[in-house]
Amino acid sequence: MSLATLAPKLKTPAVILAILAIWQGAVGLFEIREFILPTPLSALEHLFLPQPDANYNWMVHIRATLLEIGLSFVITSVVGISIAIALAWSEASRKVSMPLFVFVNSLPIIAIAPILVLWSGYGLKTNILIAFLVSFFPVVINTLAGLAAIEEELLDLVKYLHGTKLQVFLKLRIPNSLPYIFTGLKICSTMCVVGAIVGEFIASDRGLGYIIINSQYTMDSPPIYAGLMLVSLFGVSLFGLVGLAERILMPWARRGVAEK
């Protein structure tokens, strides 16, 4: 790979490094105290302190958070897309349950999280439930829009050969909705991270959210920032993975763009 093709790909990392460098410099220059704002290096240093010097066993917490984000993203995607297909399939189901979904989505999930803890206890299950409730709606709404966005005339193609409603969905509506589904999944990918962390604030004794909230009690700032950096790294990575899947699963869109 030559420098010319490599350069555009390095733009984002370069910007991130620049921000970290300014942060590092500013903390030293303005003599900001560590509990207000630690330097990025001292924050990151906490990740690599050997046990028992480190306040937290990071690997355990990272694994817990990754598991929650991963599971909640997969569950929310599958359930969200399924709900949308069911709603698109039957107008009756849409009329009955759409108001319910809007209602659930307009609840401040963070505010009802304590209730969810009372119902399903501490830990993984509750965190996934919170992440699901925060992030399922964009998946449902986008998929539903995609399923409805089919050109009427295309339906004639299946109809004149006396195809079934199932064939209309499998051959036309679902493939046609893929770009919309991926838009929904991209929003979902970042919302799942938010949901998992909020869940850990309230209903967990492990995970990066737990570290952040626990370190705040003890005014131990560097782990908070280390946790934040990891959380945003996970969010960006998941978003990137969805984008990659989109490129792989929709080659026609890629070629179309390349032509224009």
Partner: peptide, 16 residues
């Protein structure tokens, strides 16, 4: 089953 239809527009499925 034994009718073929060519529409005014090509109506191809762009993902296929």
């Amino acid at each position: 089953r034994e009718v073929g239809f060519v529409f005014q527009k090509p109506l191809l499925l762009h993902w296929r």
